[in-house]
């Protein structure tokens, strides 16, 4: 009874001036981003159209899936620099196993047509394995995730390039994908791009995992205070492994989709994707201090980044100028995020 009164009091007493100020500080980054979007819309009103909307969602889909992967790791106070190479590996594996039978430059010239699920599972398996290695190294040897995953990033590029060069045509971009594969990824169902539907399903799946399962709650607990989790009987190592494996699964799916979306794959596919994904997470409020972050935040972060880069290109803004704006947004987001938590302590 008392607690209920407290809650009600808190809700209704909260409309004072101080709180408006808090509200602005807490949401400053969104205000800035919406101002930029407003600027884009005013300069080019045709930006507001169904086609643009669809394009933005399509372009966001793979990024979002990757952001979920690295988001979990960031919640564990970590980061993952090997994301891009994992995506590249998954893309090359998927592509190499799913070329048209009549295509001239096949990676495996004599292979039969495989069911789509096989290459997908192969990509997921490879990424999960390497990501689990990351998780194990970080949890067991207490190596900073930046360094552990940087080592993985470099190692993986080597392995990936060797595999890439081992195909029948030598180190050449892999193209000529199977129609079923291309159709699955870039086709539409009832007017909605399939890739968007896939991303939506995965978002729901991740939301349930993060919020409704023991795994998710343990992830937040270990990220927020590993010592507390340990003395409460949470198996910290298992939690680390599961979070990194889940990230690997996301990278595997992301790479599988990315190859078909672009229409080709090579050992450079995915380069730099880790920074996009991490930036989106941070802008979406998944904090580097650990233990904090929501699915809705990752979605907001990815969408805002895509809208801004798409929009700036749409109004013909110089490519290099776009980099400046994106960089500033990232730093501003982090500093405002830090300020939020400083205030509370």
């Amino acid at each position: 009874m008392i607690s209920l009164e407290n809650t009600i009091q808190r809700k209704f007493m909260g409309k004072s001036k101080e709180n408006w100020k808090d509200l602005i500080v807490n949401n400053a980054i969104y205000i800035v981003i919406f101002s930029i979007i407003l600027f884009i819309v005013i300069s080019e009103p045709s930006f507001v159209s169904l086609a643009v909307f669809k394009n933005i969602l399509t372009q966001s889909s793979v990024r979002l899936i990757l952001a979920f992967g690295v988001g979990g790791i960031i919640i564990l106070q970590g980061t993952d620099l090997s994301l891009g190479r994992m995506v590249g590996f998954a893309a090359v594996i998927s592509g190499s196993l799913l070329q048209r039978p009549d295509y001239a430059n096949r990676f495996y010239p004599h292979m039969d047509q495989l069911p789509l699920i096989v290459p997908l599972l192969a990509a997921i398996a490879v990424c999960s394995f390497f990501s689990a290695v990351n998780g194990f190294v970080v949890a067991q040897f207490k190596i900073h995730p930046f360094l552990a995953t940087m080592g993985m990033m470099i190692t993986l590029y080597g392995i990936l390039s060797i595999y890439f060069a081992s195909g029948a045509p030598g180190p050449q971009p892999i193209g000529g994908f199977d129609d079923r594969y291309t159709e699955l990824v870039i086709g539409s169902t009832l007017g909605i791009p399939n890739i968007v539907i896939i991303a939506a399903i995965i978002s729901f799946f991740i939301w349930v995992l993060w919020n409704k399962t023991t795994f998710g709650k343990n992830m937040y607990a270990v990220g927020g205070n590993p010592e507390a989790a340990k003395v409460s009987g949470v198996n910290v190592m298992t939690t680390f492994l599961l979070v990194y494996i889940l990230a690997g699964v996301m990278y595997g799916i992301g790479g599988f989709l990315e190859a078909a979306r672009i229409g080709s794959a090579n050992n450079g596919t995915g380069t730099g994707y880790e920074l996009d994904a991490i930036a989106a997470c941070v802008v979406g409020g998944i904090s580097f201090s650990g233990g904090i972050g929501k699915v809705s935040g990752a979605i907001a972060g990815v969408l805002m980044f895509t809208i801004i880069s798409y929009g700036m290109t749409f109004i013909g803004m110089d490519q290099y100028f776009q980099y400046i704006i994106k960089g500033i947004i990232i730093v501003a987001a982090v500093s405002l995020d830090t300020k939020k938590y400083l205030k509370k302590s």
Binding site: T214, Y220, A228, A229, G233
Partner: peptide
Amino acid sequence: NQVTKRTITDNIWLGRYPTKGFFV
């Protein structure tokens, strides 16, 4: 030893969340 960013409930039952099938 507490996870300050989580709720009281989440902290008290940490390490032994009651589950209903797959869900907490």
